[in-house]
Design a protein around this nucleic acid. Structure first.
Lengths: 224, 224
DNA sequence: CAGCGTATGGCACTGAGTGTCAGCGGTAAA
DNA sequence: TTTACCGCTGACACTCAGTGCCATACGCTG
């Protein structure tokens, strides 16, 4: 029933557009009653994002399960990858939906509210983990926003290429940027033979832009 | 007319709630025709955010005017402060609206779309400025999202305190965190007697978390 | 005073979303 | 087999947001 409604809806959305399709049109094509549509989807917009509710639940349970891990920033990055995986499971569907949401302002707004719920889930996780730090909630909000922005940047670039290319690699790269900006340590698996007692020395002119200094440190630490 | 509609709308929203107030109620109280409401506000939600369109235009012109400045991240932070200034101009109105949007999911969604337009304006500015860098658009999106998140974190904490306290200082602190994370250099006005040729030496154990290294550098550079 | 553009109000209409109830199916108990 | 019950579905009526259309009134200019 759900699937039949989604299929009918997308067929009509692609034929004549989202706003030119009424709920009556959808239920007529699917051969079900109008009332049943709103039983499965609380609004017309929801039929465009039929799997986000489940994905959000997955993310919540994932974060709850990894409550006592260290490296919380890495954890939320992994949580963000769950969303990418959902998109990658149905590339053609995801690309069609992307083109739809890009055109229709109402769908963009709805997508924003969905993304906001993901971001809140990540921020809430980080807030608990950062409870000790000064400015913990600030850092939690900012990092969550940065992770979501990086994820979406990579996701959209993958969607623009019609689902060609390696989505995971793109997202990994984008999240790597966020991790480096917000201080995730080196990977747990250290190459054998490398001594943890190694030191690096950075000499920086006072007044140099911090990001340039950070880039130097990254290079020195053989990151990226 | 606009003001009369906004006043009537907020009076009713506070009395009986947003969803329990119909547009007919508003226009009846304001003593105008129903059609006129939708001439001034394209939707019922718009009456809750009557000044954001102007503020968005202000931000756009501000960014356009500062197209050839250096330190684009600082520029974007200053642009975000324009939004705070708008909120601070009418503290009581802003606090009332905050309580309203916190309760009503529909208004939250609408606010998200407004915030999204601010974020896009910032990101677009940064994209142009970062056109040369590798991952320029990624950095632009992430930094814009971080700036908006920091701004909103401070703004909300100010709104929660009923508009008491120093909003500017709170936002300055929050944006300072973002600037330090994304590498804004020291302030242009350097204290006299301090030589720009000074150097700092950082010794770091290989494998140490990067954020700890960054924190050390910040301290060494007398930032924050 | 006449002409005109603009702002307003009234009216009817579409379409999303909701409450309610009746029907229809399967299932368990008598 | 019959009967009572429960969950799912469809049909109808209703509210309300938002739009198109047109008549009207106001202010300004000639």
């Amino acid at each position: 029933m759900r699937d039949a409604l989604v299929a009918a809806a997308f067929q009509l959305f692609l034929e004549r557009g989202y706003e030119q399709t009424t709920v009556d049109d959808i239920v007529a094509l699917a051969g079900v009653g109008r009332r049943s549509f709103f039983r499965y989807f609380p609004s017309k917009e929801d039929v465009v994002f039929p799997d986000h509710e489940r994905c959000l639940a997955d993310m919540t349970t994932y974060l709850a399960a990894s409550a006592d891990e260290d490296e919380p920033v890495r954890r939320v990055c992994d949580a963000a990858r769950l969303v990418l995986r959902m998109y990658a499971e149905n590339p053609t569907f995801s690309v069609q939906r992307y083109r739809l949401t890009k055109k229709v302002p109402g769908l963009r707004a709805y997508e924003l509210s969905v993304v906001w719920r993901y971001e809140r889930a990540l921020a809430e996780y980080l807030r608990v983990r950062f409870a000790g730090r000064p400015d913990g909630t600030l850092q939690a909000d900012v990092i969550a926003a940065a992770v979501v922005a990086a994820h979406n940047n990579a996701l959209r670039s993958w969607l623009r290429s019609d689902g060609q290319g390696d989505a995971s690699a793109t997202v990994d790269h984008a999240l790597g940027y966020v991790q480096s900006a917000f201080g995730v340590g080196v990977p747990a698996g250290r190459p054998v033979g490398e001594q943890p007692e190694d030191v690096v020395v950075v000499v920086s002119r006072r007044g140099a832009p911090l990001w340039r200094v950070v880039r130097e440190i990254e290079t020195a630490l053989d990151r990226d």
